[in-house]
């Protein structure tokens, strides 16, 4: 993870979003709001758990709303890792 680029991270988050929502990966755009994929305060919790386990970071559920797209969320995770 430490060496992961932003685009790799975006791909990884997109894959997990696709798995969790059962949407085709090509439909999961990194610049659309989570809600576009049917994600909300309920189903985001398990998604965040998967991401935490895969990335080894602590993700507070409020972060999901602070960074409402895959791209902004991934960029934030990178800042968490570097700090």
């Amino acid at each position: 993870m430490a060496l992961m680029s932003e685009s790799d991270l975006i791909q990884l988050v997109s894959r997990i979003v696709s798995e969790e929502t059962q949407l085709d990966l090509e439909l999961v755009s990194p610049d659309k709001h989570w809600a576009t994929f049917g994600l909300d305060s309920i189903n985001s919790i398990y998604l965040l758990e998967k991401l935490e386990n895969e990335l080894g970071v602590d993700l507070n559920p409020l972060m999901f709303f602070d960074y409402p797209t895959i791209r902004t969320f991934s960029a934030h995770i990178l800042t968490l890792r570097s700090s």
Binding site: I45, L48, E49, L59, N60, P61, L62
Partner: peptide
């Protein structure tokens, strides 16, 4: 509490 994560649950 608010914003409870899966691990907290």
């Amino acid at each position: 509490d608010m914003y409870t994560s899966f691990k907290t649950l």
